[in-house]
Design a binder for these strands. Structure first.
Lengths: 226, 226
DNA sequence: CTATAAATATGATATTTATCATATGAAAAT
DNA sequence: ATTTTCATATGATAAATATCATATTTATAG
């Protein structure tokens, strides 16, 4: 069995507060999964009864609307935990989690997390801080959705994707999102997103390399995003 | 000194997990304040170093945009705690908190809260659940902002205000918001908000009694909100 | 390898919403 | 009581964005 000690999630997430003994306990209770790009880790309404450690890959947390649009609430990447909120709230998942790139995840049962929570103050504080971070981000997103135009939000999102996920050797963004997904993040129609990307391309702020996106003028993008 | 034991906040918030001894400790460390309608409890960027218990009144958490609009992120009412997130994150306030109706609040220093957090598992779980609740609400708001029209959001907000704050003897909404504040909640221009209220009024979904709002056809409003 | 489907792209148009202008009513200040 | 200020209201636009239509390119299935 793969030990959790060296795992990136153990290094980056709330789990970093666990002591050796707890990590052994963790390693004994976890289940590993491979998730193919496009597949779901869990769906909205599902009772997960635990959290998922993201060892590798990128996922999206999203909610399907009545008109068939998939609003993306958050992207998650390796090192992060998934499903903390619904586990703590004792509620079915409010959002669906799907792989955007092939993922390696581990499932940790709720009992384990609650045990750590009750016996390790630093862990509970870390967990809480991570949820607080999510809350702050969500509130700021909410404000941006109202106070910024689609163009501003697109510029902001491109910069954010670049910061958070980095770039490939050819300087294109490492996260490979479809235009539809990108539209789902900034909260607009797919066509509007495509149109604006095309505008940015013409203005040489970005370059469209097939379906990939390369940031060419970060300064100008920042200015647009404000 | 007013004992905390009988306080509504003690009954409704995470503080309900405190034992007698802890409540005495709480009562000895708190400071009480009266906040006049319109005044701030704290401003964006301020370091609060503790949380506020809302004994009475209604407040708004909001952020001022570059163009002078005040986006309201959340309303808070008696029984709730304020400033939990920034205290836990060890960050200055991300939002300003202002009184919408005269308020009675108590300030509890951070050291006190951290002590409870470290020594009372039920308290820390409650606190965490309350923040998770905020996160869920914020995520759902975010989705609604994108997926619903201003009209839908107005209907939704009116119903929500009715549910959460109740009505006066004359059946009007108990929270007295200006049109500008209402616009700040649904994320639209003040004029658009006024216009839609006027439309709802003509359709007899609501009745505008001066500046007050009375819900007349809840079923139809629900249908609009979906 | 071709047929089919899906993603990207762009034009035309409709709809929604914001902005500017101005009027009226209500509250606060003197 | 009257002036002044502010909130509410409504019309006339302008701007932003969505929707529908239709290519074109790219990916996928058979």
């Amino acid at each position: 069995m793969n030990k959790c000690d060296q795992c990136i999630v153990r290094q980056l997430s709330s789990l970093k507060a666990l002591n050796k003994e707890e990590v052994v306990k963790l390693a004994n209770s976890k289940t590993s999964y491979s998730i193919k790009k496009g597949d779901a880790i869990f769906e909205e309404g599902e009772v997960t009864n635990g959290v998922f450690c993201i060892k590798d890959g990128v996922g999206k947390l999203s909610k399907l609307s009545a008109n068939g649009k998939d609003q993306i609430v958050k992207l998650v990447k390796s090192g992060e935990l998934l499903g903390q909120r619904s586990m703590i709230s004792n509620e079915p998942a409010n959002l669906s989690a799907k792989a955007i790139a092939d993922m390696e995840v581990c499932f940790i049962p709720k009992s384990e997390i609650i045990h750590f929570f009750n016996n390790n103050n630093q862990f509970s504080l870390n967990l809480m801080q991570s949820i607080c971070e999510d809350l702050k981000e969500s509130e700021n997103d909410k404000i941006a959705l109202v106070q910024k135009t689609v163009k501003q939000r697109l510029a902001e999102t491109l910069l954010h994707l670049h910061d958070e996920f980095g770039e490939n050797a050819d300087k294109t963004l490492k996260v490979q999102l479809t235009r539809e997904e990108l539209a789902g993040i900034i909260g607009t129609a797919t066509e509007s997103c495509i149109r604006l990307l095309s505008d940015f391309n013409k203005l040489e702020l970005i370059e469209l390399v097939g379906k990939k996106i390369m940031l060419k003028n970060v300064k100008a993008l920042k200015k647009i995003a404000e």
